Amino acid sequence: MTISAAQCRAARAMVEWSRDQLAEAAAVSKRTIVDFERGARAPQRSTLAAIQRALEDAGVRFTEAGVELLDKPPHR
């Protein structure tokens, strides 16, 4: 499953991460996060996977219906 920009924004809000924090956790540029979340461009599949993995590691689960917070997110 490929995550959507809306799922990314929602997941980031759930774990209370800034775009900078997500970029650092996923090892991608902040510009990549900004452009993806606003729909300016679609990142490469490997970049999306890194973003998804970082958010999942923070306690988010992606579903067909949206996103769920599984655990209390760790503070970074």
Rank of each mutant, 00 (worst) to 15 (best):
F36T: 06
R41W: 01
R76C: 12
E37C: 05
R12S: 00
A49N: 11
S4K: 08
Q21D: 12
I3T: 07
A54I: 14
A26N: 00
S46F: 11
M1Q: 05
Q7W: 05
I33H: 05
D35M: 15
A6M: 09
H75K: 14
A5Y: 04
S18F: 08
L22Q: 03
G59Q: 03
C8H: 04
A50P: 03
M1Y: 03
E56G: 08
G66I: 10
S4H: 05
M1S: 11
D71K: 13
E56Y: 10
Q44G: 13
I33K: 06
V15E: 01
W17I: 03
P73I: 03
P73C: 09
E68I: 12
A10I: 02
E68Q: 15
G66Q: 07
Q52H: 06
T2P: 15
D20W: 03
V67A: 06
D57K: 15
I33R: 10
A11V: 00
P73D: 08
T2L: 12
V34E: 14
G59T: 06
S18I: 06
L55Y: 10
P74T: 06
A10S: 07
A27R: 14
D57F: 08
V67N: 01
I51T: 05
Q52N: 02
A11D: 03
A27M: 12
I3M: 11
A50K: 08
Q52P: 00
A40S: 15
T47W: 06
A23R: 06
A11W: 00
